[in-house]
Nucleic acid binder design. Structure first.
Length: 546
DNA sequence: TCGTTAAAG
DNA sequence: TTTTCTTTAACGA
């Protein structure tokens, strides 16, 4: 018998989603207090990407996301424009918020677990863009309830009718945690935010928009199905433009097909067992997608909150323009992208002790559709030794090397050269496939504070990738001895205790890793849960204890 | 491993 | 409506 029967979860989860209020505008105004009561928009190219509430009010709805500056200016002539083309301050503000969230959760867990004499755990945090985060506080709520002392009531708005059972008590405590965390964040950053609380990401996400700004809503799952089936499916997170287009195309494809204007319509037409599923699969691509979509349309969502960690998995720099037809112009733009990327790579390397192995180049010809093309090549070798050496010219060398690589890709795959005519509208350059750099200059560094390091990153990656069928080591290239974590001579020392069993760990990082790995397997825990449980942050924080 | 598509903010 | 500047995941080859 295959175990494909799916069962409902044994215990209800508690999921929070936070959404910073008009994030870009708030961050921009925070550093310019004199603009506090002025109508403000943050501008990229000729578009307003965000506005504050003063601007929205004044323009009476005419200033929205992605409104052309000219139009916004007509609606509100005294609009203050702030350039938002450099994302650095927004990335920094995001990091600030994430750090506060993690510190808050960490200290709660620490005190509660001590009190309850129970091993510590972590609460996964998933970054969603720069202004949103999902948090799974299931275990934290459970610990809070065990510890007692919480009044059984909701904090903030509630959507739906409550009841006197476990799930509702869970969500009550979750709403209290959400409220406390919101207060903590807005006190420390001067940024306000909304929270959505529910037992799954889908509902938490829908809840977060129900009362804005600076407020929170708990979505009681009992009301999910009727609420969601009445919505246009396109409004559901996960049901995007492409899906909507395909479904609507199907509707119009043949006469007599039913209108699909609500999620309920879709469920009604396609949830008729296996046949309906296959019909939907034919429209949306795969059966897996069909199943998820059908679930979404009924308010179901099993997806986990995935730990994002501190280090991004890829990095890109993009420029869009009306036209680029000369090599001279192209070279200049390529250098610009290259400079931006190298600058960020340098900082990333200082923080995470890693270098990208792959360079991606994206481009689009005028009239060449939405996506354009994307190519990947190996990163120029000089980048592996990128550093801000005082005397050296490493940065400039890297910028030049990447610029050259971009031009080469465009020549080879886009047929763009001095002897061809072309017209580009987009150039993207990105770095991916990060691997740890364990150089001699780093080996002797002490482990401390927020300073992440290469070996820890290696371990984190190892856990992330570990799989029931795979025995042990990460699948790094054998040709890269400097990356392996099994070279005790150059590995930093681990101290502290196992995040699973709390035993003291051996100082050798390889042995420590092995121990934690065994421990994970020893526990009756699914691989998926193990992956979620053992993430960068957690491993980092446990291994880097002074 | 490379490259595309889709989704999200 | 595909417009800005990203980041991530799933999937096919």
């Amino acid at each position: 018998m295959p175990e494909t029967k799916k069962r409902p979860r044994a215990t209800p989860r508690a999921i929070l989603t936070f959404d910073l209020d008009c994030f870009y505008a708030s961050v921009a105004i925070r550093s310019r207090p004199h603009l506090k009561d002025k109508p403000v928009v943050v501008v990229q190219k000729h578009l307003c990407v965000t506005s504050n509430y003063v601007a929205r009010q004044r323009a009476h709805g005419a200033v929205q996301k992605m409104t052309p500056v000219s139009k916004a200016l007509r609606a509100c002539p005294d609009l203050v424009q702030i350039d938002g083309s450099d994302l650095t301050p927004f990335r920094a503000a995001n990091a600030e918020v994430m750090a506060i969230v993690r510190d808050f959760l960490q200290s709660r867990v620490t005190t509660l677990c001590k009190k309850l004499a129970q091993p510590p755990f972590q609460s996964p945090c998933q970054r969603q863009g720069l202004d949103e985060v999902f948090i799974d506080v299931t275990q934290l709520v459970a610990a809070e309830i065990s510890a007692g002392g919480r009044p059984y009531r909701f904090e903030g708005h509630v959507f739906g009718a409550t009841d006197d059972d476990d799930m509702h008590r869970t969500l009550m405590v979750a709403s209290q945690i959400a409220s406390e965390l919101r207060r903590e964040i807005s006190t420390k950053t001067q940024l306000t935010l909304c929270a959505g609380v529910s037992d799954r990401k889908l509902l938490a996400k829908l809840a977060v928009d129900m009362h804005k700004p600076n407020n929170q809503t708990t979505f009681l799952p009992g009301n999910a199905k009727e609420y969601i089936t009445a919505m246009p499916p396109r409004k559901l997170p996960g049901f995007g433009y492409a899906m909507d287009t395909k479904v609507q195309a199907w509707v119009k494809e043949a006469p007599g097909r039913p209108e699909i204007s609500t999620a309920g319509d879709l469920v009604h037409r396609f949830s008729d067992g296996r046949k309906g599923l296959q019909e939907l699969a034919a429209i949306v691509g795969t059966e897996a997608v069909a199943r998820t979509v059908l679930g979404l349309c009924q308010g179901e969502d099993d997806s986990e909150v995935l730990e994002s960690g501190d280090a991004p998995k890829s990095m890109a720099s993009m420029d869009s323009f009306r036209s680029c037809t000369s090599m001279e112009d192209l070279r200049r733009r390529a250098r610009e992208r290259s400079t931006d990327l190298v600058t960020r790579l340098l900082r990333d390397g200082q923080r995470f002790h890693r270098r990208p192995r792959t360079l991606t180049v994206g481009y689009r010809f005028r009239g060449g559709g939405y996506h354009g093309a994307m190519r990947a090549t190996s990163m120029p070798a000089v980048v592996s030794s990128l550093s801000s050496s005082k005397g050296g010219d490493s940065v400039d060398v890297c910028i030049g090397a990447i610029q050259k690589a971009i031009l080469l890709v465009l020549r080879e795959h886009g047929n763009i050269s001095a002897s061809s005519t072309f017209d580009l509208t987009l150039l993207t350059v990105g770095a991916t496939n990060f691997t740890n750099q364990l150089a001699s200059n780093f080996t002797n560094k002490t482990l401390s504070g927020n300073e992440n390091n290469a070996s820890l990153q290696g371990i984190a990656n190892f856990f992330r990738k570990s799989d029931a069928s795979v025995t042990h080591m990460p699948q790094t290239k054998p040709t890269e001895p400097s990356l392996s974590i099994d070279s005790p001579a150059s590995s930093p020392q681990a101290t502290g205790s196992c995040p699973i069993c709390d035993h003291k760990l051996p100082p050798n990082i390889v042995l420590a890793t092995r121990h934690v790995d065994r421990c994970l397997r020893g526990k009756d825990v699914t691989v998926k849960a193990a992956k979620t449980a053992c993430n960068t942050r957690r491993v980092d924080s446990f291994f880097s204890k002074r």
